[in-house]
Amino acid sequence: MSQAKGRRKGRPSSCSSGRCATTPSKSGGGRKPSSRKKGERGGVKIQPKRQSPRRQATAPKGAVAEVRLQKWLAEQGVCSRREGEKIILEKRVSINGSIVHELGVKVAPKDEVRVDGRIIQQRRDASVVVMFHKPRGLICTKSDPQGRRTIYELLRTPWPRLISVGRLDLNSEGLLLLTTDGALAHGLMHPSREVPRTYRVKVRGVITKEQLQQLTTEGVELEDGPTGPLDVKLDQLTGGNSWVTMTLKEGRNREIRRIFDSLKLTVARLLRVSYGGVELGELPAGQWRTCTPDEWRALKQASEGSLIGADEGEEGDAAEASAQEGAARDDTPAAEA
């Protein structure tokens, strides 16, 4: 019997597969045990495969997610998000009777939120109205081929698709409303609603009694039709200039400037101070805030009424379509003042 056969016979009975390691002979025969450590291949460490993170369970369809408190306050029109953070840290906000001491707290739909002890009612819709104090030297489009500055360089809000409620031209300033609600914007701009817009106007030269009487009793004739009697009040005369307050109920292109041009007078400054009963107040130039619930309700009421040849659904769709086209072409409605 050969030596190889003898080795096969000498295998332990427990090694039935014939694959168990044998002790190498002195002459170097047999398989040597590997010197590689576990987790190595060719002397290189093998990195363990990363476990893919578990995807968080999504909320059931139709469930309303919780939102951060400062964002919730801004959505209800209480204040801007930054102002919300400030009043939270000042411990002026409570949820379900407990004062909030830090940022990051979230609000659920059924929570009761109070600011300075006053309950904040949650809006049933998601529409937002932003008040912006437009400075002079800015235009009201997303971009400009001539490279002029736009309001969006200063107006940085959480809502990317705001619809401008009318416009102010390059040299006009004051209150500009923007909203996420197409129907609201359409209603506020529609001439049949006669929503009042009030302006403070500085005119070069002295307005005579005769000119003032003409404006208030007859109005003037413009290229696009007569104005009819106007609501104009002379506030003061200073240094050869006249300050007047004027309220319009329509949004014709550059109407105020054209009115005074027809009287051979030049507008030196034009400031919109209110729209639909919402006042600019002490809002600094270049700053914005959301409307309060009372202001939002006033605008909603001003926007409601009969529209000639359109129902509520049609006007909302038309406003949304107009806003989308304007954003694509930068062709928003002509400046009112």
Rank of each mutant, 00 (worst) to 15 (best):
S17D: 15
T217N: 10
K32R: 14
G240E: 02
G251Y: 07
T208P: 01
L299P: 09
G137A: 05
R114E: 14
L178W: 01
G117H: 08
G286F: 09
T23D: 07
R50D: 03
A323P: 01
R19Q: 14
A328W: 05
L103C: 04
G42V: 02
E320K: 11
G326L: 05
E66S: 12
R19C: 00
Y275E: 03
V232Y: 03
W288N: 00
K49R: 15
P135A: 04
E325L: 13
K134C: 08
G29R: 12
P333Y: 07
L138M: 13
A285S: 15
T216H: 06
E85F: 01
F132R: 08
T217H: 13
D311N: 15
K9L: 14
E75C: 07
G84M: 07
E218K: 14
Q287A: 07
I88E: 10
G137V: 07
L215E: 09
E312D: 12
L230R: 05
L162Q: 09
D231I: 02
D144T: 12
R124N: 13
A21M: 06
K32Y: 13
S98K: 14
S27G: 02
E40W: 13
E325Q: 14
A268L: 13
E194Y: 00
G326P: 03
I88W: 07
L154V: 04
G39M: 07
E250V: 02
D331R: 10
L265G: 01
